[in-house]
Design a protein around this nucleic acid. Structure first.
Lengths: 346, 346
DNA sequence: TTGAAAGCGTTACCAT
DNA sequence: ATGGTAACGCTTTCAA
């Protein structure tokens, strides 16, 4: 860590002067100001948040208090915060603005505010991770990059989950299955790993089982009548089962099918991956779901990070958690004969 | 703020000894330990988190990094954290465990970790608020207690929202309306204000307009077939419009109505209060919604708290925000003649 | 305009 | 088992 004293030495001024330029507290001649600024830049100095807090008696931290109840604010945050609290740590929420996330990461990592970092919405190639490593900041990813070497992460085991689901479908006689994933191309999340990994795993599994699989990337909203059912009927009319990676899409799909006289799961089976069982229960029929183990992920990630901070093990924590199966009534045997979606083309 | 030195003086020991007993760092004779502990209790001492962080070079804070994207982690948290960051503050998430929330609040308020507090899920009578006041901790409620005198809060204007909605319904010819709210009796949120305030406002408004209004408190899940429609048909068969304070219930209701050959909004109008427009859009027909202005609430609350910390105004910030109307297709004129729910009783 | 030095509240090392 | 005291990294008053 670079201290103010080091900057002062390098700029050949007193520590007070550095403080003045850093905080703009008092006027400083342009020449000295520049010398100081140069030293700051060269050394990569960041003022220490804790020391500053102590000296000013101002932590500049505000707390968001929330009771732990079933109506939870957010499963990841709540579980991570709870695990942290149990170990005597606090969790600060640090919003990253899409334009210069990398810079913000470096700032946080070098400010001394936080000792370690939990990173959400990880992408295949993620500069934020590189920055964290460059700053030598302990971190645990909730998600994972493509390159995993030596990196700590807790993620959903998409591969395993897809394998399980496809196997189950095959066992029920399905030979033509479809996967619906979010299409993030063109958004800041274009390289977001989950849909990509899932699609890859899906293709691999259908190939392994020698059945037919089609992938449908859909943009954002899938409200009733958005045409997803038509698209599937058009491109893959033999489909008898849909693997939905967007829980919300289920409402629209079930609705549109019903509007065409088709019934779930008699004519088409639906399995949700990564959705929440709670929202699946609102659909009729209640959806067969493989739920994101969000609480466990948040807890494990926080614990892994803390373990690293306490210097427990040198081993990287690399945890893959399969989605939790929650039974519903949207999965059944494949209809006999060809898929019923065919009727839609008539 | 009570310091270690003060405890030491009172217990007639050195500051080191106090540190030893506080942290259990080194053995201390039972007698001195008791004297120190007594002094701690009497003075209400809490070790200062920032000083400790500086001395140990351990902040015991971990950060949760999350990009700001539409798929937001939680509207309240995200907006509050963003507003805080914009003002140079950080937001720490502090889970409260239902059994001794009051104690935890006091601990936080006196630890020097946070300068101010944002409190969620406020109840009519809320000991946490009293504790905050006793500890002289600046706070802003997201929600509000029954007694508002001098308290800072940002809340939904349920009264205003209900008045608007009822007026609109009356304008459309509805004379028999129902309100569905969550029944929290027996849970830790029993005294949670929103449903109570809404029900009160509802009763008042229907009385003012001289129309009929029934309130239906429902417990938790309202999945398809949970019987809510039956209950309404039974207790208030003339109902032509339902005001739903549980967004999720809409799926079940619409479904159950359809199962009985009734159509929204032809036979029954539905207006959601406090739900999210995004989930309302998943229903067919898309629901007419009065959405919680969550982002604005989070932002305003954080800003108000920071303003107080910076000592801006002595005036209490008391902001009431009406829910934002989002048009949908679940609201229409009252059916001519008596309400169609009647057919259900046949 | 700049510097010296006294805190801020703890911890932790070194004595006793 | 206890105490004295130098850090920790910064801010801020007071002098120069």
């Amino acid at each position: 860590m670079v201290t103010m004293q080091q900057v002062a030495d390098r700029a050949r001024v007193s520590i007070s002067t550095v403080s003045f330029v850093v905080n703009g507290t008092k006027p400083v001649t342009p020449e000295t100001r520049d010398r100081v600024q140069a030293a700051i830049d060269e050394l990569g100095y960041r003022r220490n948040a804790m020391a500053r807090a102590l000296a000013t008696r101002r932590s500049r931290i505000i707390a968001l208090l929330h009771p732990i109840i079933e109506r939870n604010i957010n499963a990841f945050i709540e579980s991570a915060a709870t695990a942290a609290a149990a170990a005597g740590y606090s969790l600060v929420v640090w919003p990253l603005h899409t334009d210069n996330q990398a810079q913000e990461v470096t700032t946080l990592a070098t400010s001394g505010m936080a000792e370690g970092v939990l990173l959400l919405e990880v992408q295949f190639e993620d500069e934020r991770v590189t920055r964290l490593e460059a700053a030598d900041a302990p971190y645990v990813l909730i998600g994972r990059t493509r390159d995993l070497a030596g990196r700590d992460y807790v993620d959903i085991d998409f591969e395993q989950t897809v394998a399980t689901v496809v196997e189950r479908l095959v066992g029920l006689g399905h030979r033509h299955v479809a996967l619906v994933v979010e299409d993030l191309a063109g958004t800041p999340l274009a390289d977001y790993a989950p849909p990509l990994r899932t699609a890859d795993a899906f293709r691999e599994e259908v190939a392994r089982h020698r059945i037919h699989g089609s992938v449908f990337p859909v943009r954002n909203s899938v409200s009733p009548g958005a045409g997803l059912v038509d698209r599937i009927a058009e491109d893959a009319p033999e489909t008898t089962a849909v693997l939905l990676m967007m829980g919300d899409a289920a409402f629209g799909i079930v609705h549109d099918l019903r509007g065409r006289g088709l019934v779930v799961p008699r004519d088409l089976s639906i399995v949700v991956i990564g959705g929440s069982a709670a929202s699946g229960a609102l659909v009729d029929p209640p959806l067969t779901t493989y739920e994101t183990p969000a609480e466990e992920m948040g807890t494990r990630a926080a614990q892994a990070l803390i373990a690293r901070l306490e210097g427990a093990d040198a081993e990287a924590t690399q945890v893959l958690l399969p989605c939790r199966p929650v039974s519903g009534e949207s999965l059944a045997h494949a209809p006999v004969g060809r898929g019923s979606l065919r009727v839609l083309r008539a």
